[in-house]
Design a protein around this nucleic acid. Structure first.
Length: 291
DNA sequence: TCCTGATGGGTAC
DNA sequence: TACCCCTCAGGAT
């Protein structure tokens, strides 16, 4: 279950494992079988992430004399990019090829050493370069591309749009046309860390607010990309420092407000509040984030 | 055994 | 705004 850091991490792991190699591609669960057959045995050129979107590029070629994977039986057409969006419940994991994979496997990529297996994605489509470009063009600024000049140009536009918006920051932060890759955990944690009420309107946010939000997203998401989990608590609020039980949660990390409704704020003790914003449960501290 | 929720987003009304 | 899809784990029954 992904925010952008998971997708960028996946792209990196896929490149480490497969880039430049011929791979076998299949769809055991069946829904992507026809497309997988077109890719089977061809070279996985590279994987790339934009926000929460993952693109896996294939190039003509096969194992040739090695003959260990696939047959590259099909000629690669203009549709040679797999566009994956994990949605709310999708997973895409890598593991040693000798460990059995169970469950509903939409996409299986293997080089005989490592297996990558995709479950429950919102999308898994075979698309053209033009379609990839169109998908990327719809996205806003991605905090995990902090030095990309195009991305930073987009950021200027994002800040201008936020500055004109009457929508709340709690809503704006979930908009992929603005902040690409940010999801429900980062929106809640960033607003908490900056002491900003999720109700504050874009038009009511200072230039400093917007810059701090971007800087913090950049830091936190880079950490998340490296570690594979979301941790936002400062050293003085870790379970060890506070003598409290570590969080037992599927996302694993230590956070201030996300899914802590009714529990005392780690900083001030006020019960954490929750409300549905943009169709998702938002969490905040009414005291630390008073306005 | 059933029911619900979960780091998401598209489409239809 | 409501509803739909994808999968799976954990809690309620």
């Amino acid at each position: 279950m992904p925010e952008g850091h998971v997708i960028h991490r996946l792209a990196r792991l896929l490149n480490d494992a497969f880039a430049g190699e011929p791979v076998s591609v299949s769809s055991p669960q069946g829904t992507f079988a026809q497309q997988a057959a077109q890719l089977d045995g061809h070279v996985l050129e590279r994987a790339e992430a934009w926000g929460k979107h993952l693109f896996i590029h294939f190039a003509p070629g096969n194992g040739g004399a090695s003959g260990t994977v696939g047959g590259a039986g099909a000629v690669l057409g203009p549709e040679r990019i797999v566009h994956i969006h994990l949605g709310l419940i999708g997973t895409f994991r890598l593991q040693p090829a000798d460990v059995p994979v169970t469950g509903q496997i939409r996409l299986l990529v293997s080089d005989g050493t490592t297996v990558a297996h995709l479950h429950g994605p919102q999308w898994c489509r075979l698309i053209t370069e033009e379609e990839r470009d169109a998908a990327v063009a719809k996205l806003g600024a991605d905090p995990l591309r902090p030095t990309d000049p195009d991305n930073l140009a987009t950021l200027d536009d994002v800040h201008a749009r936020v500055a004109r918006s009457k929508r709340s920051l709690g809503s704006l932060l979930m908009d992929q046309k603005l902040y690409a890759g940010v999801g429900n955990i980062y929106r809640a944690e960033v607003l908490f860390l900056l002491g900003i009420s999720p109700d504050r309107a874009g038009v009511g946010a200072s230039r400093e607010d917007k810059e701090q939000i971007w800087e913090l997203l950049t830091d936190l998401m880079a950490q998340g990309e490296a570690s594979g989990r979301i941790d936002t608590v400062r050293p003085e609020h870790t379970p060890e420092a506070m003598g409290r039980e570590p969080r037992k949660d599927d996302h694993g990390g230590e956070v201030y407000v996300y899914r802590r409704a009714g529990q005392p704020c780690l900083v001030c003790g006020t019960p954490i509040a929750t409300a549905v914003v943009e169709g998702r449960n938002l969490f905040w501290c009414p005291t630390c984030q008073a306005e």
